[in-house]
Design a binder for these strands. Structure first.
Lengths: 108, 108
DNA sequence: CTGATATTTGCCAATTTAGCCAAAAAGACA
DNA sequence: TGTCTTTTTGGCTAAATTGGCAAATATCAG
């Protein structure tokens, strides 16, 4: 039973880990307004196609996105819908932190 | 201007990356109901004190927690309050995923 | 079947991260 | 002062991650 909880914790960490890369975060952000094919995402992040494909695999294995082959392309969709709000929250935290670090050296 | 956005994306990814480790996630989860000293957190995760200290540094540098020296101990506090809801959401996603993988092999 | 396009996979080098031990810091306190 | 106690840091090794190129796969259009 303890093992189950530990496994769950690891799976949960996997979600965060998958989101912990600029390119992957950018792609997930883009997927918030609808599915995109790999080629669109490749264009967005500018990396090699193979690199993008691997990033997407990480997101897929974490359960954050799902993929569907349709016609000649593969489309990726955001599965973890609750992510949106948290993305906004972290974005705010980042600007807040930047402001603090900007003010601090001048203060005191 | 583009550089600023890129930097912000990196900072945001840093938050997720910091949360992408079982021990760190466990500690953050524990901090949801109030500050804890390093020794308490060490006991919680069971790792070497030095390891825990480094994990906490990662969380601190990402801006997720803050620390305060008081008396003989150092207390860590959760700063990113919006995290709570998302933690619950990801926990649900994990159990959902586990259920899906449990059913799938049997089905069809 | 052949060729063109979209995506994934195998392999490899470079960088980063994790975790431990020992040593250093910083207080508290006698 | 010296000596506990708590926490951080230096240094090291093992393991994981990243990203590119080339090759494999799959699928569509003739």
């Amino acid at each position: 039973m303890l093992t189950r909880q530990k496994r769950a914790l690891g799976e949960q960490a996997k979600i965060f880990k998958a989101l912990g890369h600029p390119s992957r975060l950018l792609m997930v952000e883009a997927l918030r307004d609808g599915e995109k094919c790999v080629c669109e995402l490749r264009e967005l992040v500018g990396d090699d196609m193979s690199t993008v494909s691997r990033h997407l695999a990480v997101l897929r294995e974490a359960g954050i996105v799902s993929s569907e082959k349709r016609g000649t392309n593969i489309y990726y969709t955001l599965k973890l819908s609750c992510l949106g709000i948290f993305l906004e929250c972290t974005a705010r935290a980042v600007t807040r932190k930047a402001r603090e670090q900007f003010e601090e050296p001048g203060a005191r």
